[in-house]
Amino acid sequence: MKNIFIVLLLISFCPLNAQNFKAYQFYDQKGKEIDTDKLVRKLADYDVVFFGENHNSSINHWLQLKITEALHLQKNGQIILGAEMFERDNQPQLNQYLNGKFDAKTLKDSARLWNNYATDYQPLVDFAKIQKLNFIATNVPRRYASRTAKEGFESLNNLTEKDKRYMARLPIKVTLDTPGYPEMKAMMGDHADGTKVMNFISAQAIKDATMAESILKNIQPGKTFIHYNGNYHTKEFGGIYWYVKQKSPNLKMAVISVSESENPELNFPEKDYIPTDFNLIIPADMTKTY
């Protein structure tokens, strides 16, 4: 009788619709679940790891930090960090902060930091600072991407040689064979002006090509270069990945893509999804940083 009472008591405190809540789930390219320990061991074998992100996802940024910390241990410190969120001409300011010559306020006042820098990217930069790691500002200054979107690639030829140092070497190949670019064209619609469409895609291309060149200029034998970028920049092995592959086809590279799910089990996507090497699935209602 006593045991029955205990069972009834437990049931009364356990709602019948209770369920486990998952904050994230990693899968490999075949759709098999992979835990973070195994993921880190696998990532250690790559020359370049692209860690895609949804810019406003809190769990995405937390995982970037934790995977980076774990990979740093796995590789005995032999890693290099780099990010889309920092532009090439701000590398000196970033270096000054990493070397302890700038404080956080001076960096903020002197560099073009994203609005969510303090919550989402400063933890990675501070980790690099503490561990004395290189952190590479890989992206083209936004003024040149904006100019490309408005006036096309030809307008960049008029820049000074100093300005051109902050972008990938011209001319830059732009082709709709690059994964992701046909999707951008489709977004513009069938009736959009052809020149405007290609200028829009070219603005994306100058970002991708510049980030690819920045990685290739700073990669070192035996070290894993971890690059943080918006998911679209490496989606389906396109963008930055594609441009690196054109220049250095023998580099061993991995892409971590991210996708949101309404399903609480965070199952592997089955429709309209092309997986990359590793695939991070996160809840659609996860807290956003902005």
Rank of each mutant, 00 (worst) to 15 (best):
K2E: 08
F5G: 04
L8K: 03
S12D: 02
F13V: 15
F13K: 11
P15Q: 14
Q19S: 06
N20A: 12
A23F: 07
Q25H: 14
D28M: 00
G31M: 01
D35C: 00
V40K: 10
V40H: 04
R41W: 03
Y46S: 06
F50P: 07
F51T: 00
H55P: 11
S58G: 10
I59C: 01
W62E: 14
Q64I: 08
T68D: 08
T68I: 05
L71G: 02
Q74M: 12
Q74W: 08
K75C: 09
N76H: 12
G77K: 03
L81Q: 02
A83Q: 04
A83H: 04
E84P: 11
E87D: 12
D89S: 11
D89R: 08
N90S: 14
P92L: 02
L94C: 02
L94Q: 05
Q96W: 06
K101E: 09
D103F: 12
D103I: 13
A104L: 04
L107N: 13
D109I: 11
S110F: 02
W114R: 13
W114T: 13
Y117D: 06
Y121K: 05
Y121P: 05
Y121M: 07
Q122A: 13
D126H: 03
D126G: 02
A128M: 02
A128I: 08
K129G: 08
K129N: 10
K129E: 08
I130C: 00
N134F: 02
N139G: 06
R143M: 14
Y144N: 01
A145T: 13
A149I: 08
E151F: 15
E151W: 14
E154A: 15
S155I: 11
L156N: 03
L159T: 01
T160Y: 10
K164E: 05
Y166W: 15
Y166M: 07
R169C: 01
R169N: 13
R169F: 09
D177P: 05
G180N: 12
Y181L: 11
M184V: 11
K185V: 15
K185F: 12
M188Y: 10
G189I: 12
K196A: 14
M198Y: 07
F200K: 04
A203N: 12
A205R: 03
A209L: 06
A209V: 07
T210H: 03
T210G: 01
E213K: 12
I215M: 06
K217W: 12
N218L: 14
I219G: 00
G222I: 15
K223D: 08
F225W: 07
H227F: 03
Y228H: 13
N231Y: 12
Y232P: 09
G238N: 02
Y241W: 11
P249C: 05
L251A: 01
A254M: 07
V255M: 09
V258K: 02
S259P: 09
S261R: 05
S261D: 06
N263Y: 02
P264I: 06
N267L: 13
F268M: 04
E270N: 04
K271C: 01
K271Q: 09
K271R: 09
T276W: 00
T276K: 05
L280F: 11
I282Y: 01
I282W: 00
